[in-house]
Write a protein that binds this DNA or RNA. Sequence first.
RNA 1: GCCGGAGUAACUCAGUGGUAGAGUAGCUGUUUUGUAAACAGCAAGUCGCGAGUUCGAAUCUCGCCUCCGGCUCCA
Length: 586
Amino acid sequence: MNIDHIRHSFAHLLAAAVQKLYPKTTFGIGPVIENGFYYDFGNLKIGPEDLSKIETEMRAIAKRNLPFKKELWTAPKAKVYFKKEKQPYKIELIDDLKKEAKKAKEFKIGIVCTGDAFLDLCKGGHVKNTSELPLDAFKLTKIAGAYWKGDEKRPMLTRIYGAAFENKEQLDHYLWQEEEAKKRDHRIWGERLKLFTFAKEIGPGLPLWLPNGAVVLEEIENYAKQVEREWGYQRVRTPHLAKEELYKISGHIPYYKESMYPPMMLDDGNYYLKAMNCPHTHMIYKSEPRSYRDLPLRLAEFGTVYRYELSGTLAGLLRVRGFTQNDAHIYCREDQAEDEFLKVMQLHEFWYKKIFHITDFYMRLSLPNKDKKKYIQDSQGWGKAATIIRNAMKRSGLPYVEVLGEAAFYGPKVDFQIKSVIGREETASTNQLDFVAAKRFGLAYVDAGGKEKPVYVIHRAPLGSHERFIAFLIEHYAGAFPLWLAPEQMWIIPISERFEEYAKAVEKQLKENNQNLRTQILASGETLGKRIREGELQKIPYLLIVGEKEVETQTISIRARGKGDLGQTAIKEFKEKIEKEIKERM
RNA sequence: GCCGGAGUAACUCAGUGGUAGAGUAGCUGUUUUGUAAACAGCAAGUCGCGAGUUCGAAUCUCGCCUCCGGCUCCA
C-alpha cells in the first residue's frame, strides 16, 4: 500500500474527527509530510490534552469502514457547497485553482468524501476504505500555530501534526528515534558538560562560552586558521560596528534593516552593530589599488555579527543573535571565479568528510524568484553567476539541488546542508557569488592592459556560524568529542591516596613537551567506581587508573570512553598513541 | 513577531487555597577504594517578575520576562 495514500487518508480522517468534536472549525489544508501528515484548522482552540480525544474519535470513524470516494465538481458547484458550510479557506483555494487552470477548457475540482463523515477538496491519493488504515500505526504528535498559506500577514491557524506509517513497528521506531534525538539535544549536553550558558541579564540569543565550551571553540578556530593559511587565505580583522553610510552603500539598509539591532545615534551619524562582515572586508580591499596580479585575494576573519532575530526563532546555539562566522571574501577576476568557487567546495568537503566525518551532506543552489523587492534586478548578472556556480558544483562531484527564492539579494547562494546521525538537517554554511558588490563599492582591479575592471566577490564560511556548527557537532558526537576537541582529554585516577604521587608523575610524563594536553588528576575523595562513572558521564576520552600494579610495572591502566578497561600500557606507548590521535584529529 | 505549552534549591522533579519537599550535585566528617553511584550529617528556595482576588496564594486572575514545540525567518 502506498504510504502517502495512508498518510493523506489520515489527514482526511483527522479533519473528520475535528469536525465532529468541534463543529465550528474551518478547514485549511492537510498535506502529507515526511513521517506523517498535518491539517490546518481555523477557529479551533485546543491544548495537547485534547489530542488523545481526537485520536479516539479518528479510530471510531475509521471503524465504520467508510469508503473514500472521489468526484469532480465544477467550481461553482463546489463554491456553493463550501459557502453553505461556511468554509472561507476552501473557497479561497477554489478561486486559486481556478486562476491556475484558467487556460484549461473544462475545469473541474476534485472532491473526496470520507463516507458521510467528511467532504474535502482533494487532488486524490488515498486508500479505498477507512478499514484499510493501520489504526495502530498513527499518532497525533503536536499542535502548532501556522499562518494561512505561510504568510505572516494572514490569520494564524491551528495545525495538528500526526505521524503515520504502514505498521506499528515503523511508528514505534520513529517515536524511539525522536526520543533518541531529544537525548542528543545540544542544549542538554551544553549544560551537562558545561559548554555554554545564557544569562537573562545579557539577553536572549547571546551565548556565554564556559571554559569547556571555549576549548572546543578555540581548538576549531585555531585549526581553521591553520587550514586557511594552507589554502591561501590572509587574515584580517574588522570592528564590530560601522556607520549607516557603509550599509547604505552595501544595500543592507533597505534589504536587511529589520534584522539589525537599532542604531546608536551619535553626533557624526548613526552607528550599527554589524550584521554581516562583507562591507567591512570590502573596505580593506579598497584600501589600496589592486592589480590583476594580486587576484585572487582571499581575506579571512572570524567575524562576530549581531542580528536581531525574531525572539520566537531563537534556539540554543542553533539560532542566536550574536555569533561568529568563519568568514572570508575572495576577490577575483571573472575567469577565476569558477576555479575559486570549486576550491571553496573542496574546502567544505575537507572539513565535513575528512575532519568531522559528516558524510551525509549536499549543496543547495538558491536562485532568485520573481520577487522584485527581494533581489537586485540584473538578469544578465544573475545568469552569469548561476552558470559559474553550476559548473563549479558539477566539477566538485558533490551532490546538489537547485531551488528558487532563497538567494541573497546580491547573488546566488550555495548552502551546504548537513545531516546529523539523528537525521536533523541544518544549513551549515552559506556561500555566495556576488556580482553586485563591485559596482556598489567600486571594487576593481587594473587589468594587463591598464584598464579598470570589476571584481567578483565570493562570500564563504565553511563552518557557518561557529555557534551553530558546534551545536551540530555536539549532537553529531552526542557529547563524546574526538580527542583533539574534548574539553578534558583524560583523567588520571589514583585508586587510593597512596598512589597520588604516582599519578602526578604520570601526568608529568604525559605532558612532557606537550603542555597543551588537557589532563586532570582525580584525587581519592570518592570511590573508584564513582569517579569512573563520572568520567564516563562526562564523556572523558581516556580514564587512566593507577594503583599498586601500575606502580610496580610503571604503567597505566587505560579505560577508553565507552569501551571499558583496555588493560595496562606503558606510559610512553600511550603518550605516542594519543599524540598521534590528536595530531591526526581522529 | 505570531499560535500553543512551561517556569518550585545548581540540576531533575513532587507539591491545586492553610507552616515549601525529595533525589542528585555542593559543603563537613568517616571510609582509602581495582573499572558506571560508600556512609552519616549540614547547608541551600523572593516558588521567574509585578499587580490583583482572598482572612490567607507556589496554587486563582491579569500584565510582563525567559525557555520549549511550531509558523514566518535564517548561519
